[in-house]
């Protein structure tokens, strides 16, 4: 069992929390997410050109880079997190260029050494897997792919091939932030994904409140919350950990109390 598969084998759905590395006191903020009940941490690698992100996460990227955050800093934050939390899965999420700047093999081994469990690279689709995927797999890091409302049944197998850890379902065709998907469209999409894979399905983009998170957790294996947390970091500075702990706790309560959605093998 890996840390990621453990997190998705708990008796309840998983809460996945995203914040951007180097934005505020990241160590304190990450600890607050874990204390609040996050099951998986997604740590954003800041990038100058976050094309898939809305204003909240764009601003977090700018704050982080403005504070001088480097890739070495991000990896240091990950390594220290791993020392403090040996069992909580940690996933790096970001864009291709910072990940491949010194070669994919360098990044994969540095991430492994820092205790990273998975990597989500927004702008490496299956077609360009060679740019990073083989090195991640060789290092024992899960390449986590995204499926979206535009990923049709014909394309889905290609997305699933070589995916590992979990499948991240992007519930809206759009950028991160406030736009929300209708619950029924999420239910339909997750049902189709589950029929096609045994990987856990985590749903994200536009999830902000415990009510939404709880509703999604009824059908999915995980719920990802990002912008709402990142906004708290931006607004509250050194008071952010307390605010993060509270929001995470209410999200965790809603997600963890939802009945676990059916798995492919249960439906067969």
């Amino acid at each position: 069992m890996t840390r990621l598969s453990n997190a998705f084998s708990k008796p309840h759905p998983a809460l996945v929390c995203f914040i951007t590395a180097g934005d505020g006191d990241t160590a304190a903020n990450l600890d607050a997410l874990v204390e609040g009940g996050a099951d998986v941490i997604e740590l954003g690698m800041p990038f100058t050109d976050p094309m898939a992100d809305g204003p909240a996460i764009q601003n977090a990227n700018l704050r982080s880079l403005g504070a001088g955050t480097t890739t070495a800093d991000v990896l240091r934050i990950a390594r220290k997190f791993r020392e403090r939390h040996p069992n909580v899965p940690l996933v790096l999420m970001g864009y291709a260029n910072p990940m491949i700047r010194h070669g994919p093999e360098w990044f994969a081994s540095a991430a492994k050494e820092a205790g990273v469990d998975g990597v989500i690279c927004v702008d490496i689709p299956p077609e360009e897997d060679d740019a990073l995927g083989p090195d991640l797999r060789a290092a024992g890091i899960a390449p986590i792919r995204l499926a979206t409302p535009t990923t049709d049944a014909k394309r889905l197998p290609q997305v699933l091939e070589g995916s590992d850890g979990f499948l991240y379902y992007v519930s809206v065709a759009g950028i991160t932030g406030k736009q929300q998907a209708a619950q029924t469209s999420i239910e339909d999409a997750v049902a189709k994904l589950k029929a096609a894979t045994d990987l856990p399905i985590a749903v994200g983009f536009g999830v902000r409140t415990p009510e939404q998170a709880g509703a999604i957790a009824k059908v999915a294996d995980g719920v990802v919350v990002g912008s709402a947390l990142v906004e708290l970091v931006g607004e509250h500075g050194s008071d952010a950990p307390e605010k993060l702990r509270k929001l995470t706790a209410s999200l965790a309560k809603a997600v963890h109390s939802a009945a676990k959605g059916p798995r492919k093998e249960d439906m067969a």
């Binding site: 898939a52 927004v122 689709p125 499926a147």
Partner: peptide, 20 residues
């Protein structure tokens, strides 16, 4: 056929855009 000019080019886009 994959849009590569030697090592360059390609289709490094978010999954949402890939079908497009």
């Amino acid at each position: 056929e994959r849009g590569h000019f030697g090592d360059y080019g390609g289709r490094y886009v978010a999954e949402t855009l890939m079908p497009l």
